[in-house]
Design a protein around this nucleic acid. Structure first.
Lengths: 149, 149
DNA sequence: CGAATATGGTTTCAAACGTAACTGTCGATT
DNA sequence: AATCGACAGTTACGTTTGAAACCATATTCG
């Protein structure tokens, strides 16, 4: 009953999606189980941890998240005292976000786990497969920039 | 303020996720806008369209979807008269799913669009990038099988 | 100046989601 | 044939989501 030559199994969006789910979920399980973090929260933490003080909008562009996700993540992290906000002097719409000492500790711990997972991935995919994947992702990212989201 | 050498921008789960979102969302926009389909619905349609009559569980494994997603998608497609169920004679737990004529038409139309999009992707990523990505995905899929989800 | 428009961030609302509990059926064991 | 565990599929429930409306402030331009 094959009404055409289409096959989901070879359709790039499908494959990419499934692969991403597989790879990301394994790590998500870690930060969720160990720290009760959601993905937006982890990403926000990561963005602030590696780039330091920045605004919510900047976090959003940096980690490609919708503003509402960022807003909620910031709120959650703030509640947990891992992050503090300060209003911009000149523009009172803007708020600057920064990790607290506790936030920095969590960030360090999590990046350690992220490192472990990266190693595990190298192992899981093989250096050959990893290289291919990385260069494929380069291509996608170039295309993303060209198409400006 | 870089408390470590971690960089989200190079972290595979993040990159993969973002790429998948980018690639998949562009196509999702099509079937959503044109047909009001959700992703589970499109996947179910695609599975049944290319492999013909099968059970809900089979759709799930074929397209890696949770049973509840399949259940809801089947319900929606049935309501739209794109799909019909028939109970198995021997095992009354099992139901066989099949596209109606209307469903097959929709499937044909959508696979045409999927084909267009694939071509667009080749264009967007370049044959080199596409090849790399595909072989990277091969590696991931091998790993998935090894780790059995 | 004052009106219109843009921007940073939040809130609301309906849809989609996953987990877990559920229903109904089957096969195996006794 | 009564009981048990396994399985197909659904439902209920609380959570997460994105779109759009919103609030407050800033900027542009008539």
């Amino acid at each position: 009953m094959d009404y055409s030559d289409f096959d989901l199994e070879t359709f790039l969006p499908f494959r990419l999606n499934r692969a991403a789910e597989f790879i990301a979920l394994r790590f998500a399980a870690t930060y969720k189980a160990e720290y009760g973090l959601t993905r937006p929260e982890w990403r926000t933490l990561a963005a602030l941890g590696s780039s330091g003080r920045m605004t919510a909008t900047a976090v959003g562009t940096h980690s490609t998240m919708h503003k509402t996700k960022v807003s909620r993540a910031v709120f959650a992290l703030e509640e947990r005292r891992w992050l503090k906000r300060t209003q911009d002097e000149d523009d009172r719409r803007v708020e600057h976000l920064e990790l607290t000492a506790a936030g920095q500790n969590a960030y360090r711990e999590l990046t350690r786990l992220a490192g472990d997972y990266s190693a595990e991935l190298t192992d899981l995919l093989g250096s050959e497969g990893l290289r291919a994947l990385a260069s494929g992702l380069d291509a996608v990212e170039k295309a993303m920039v060209r198409r400006r989201r």
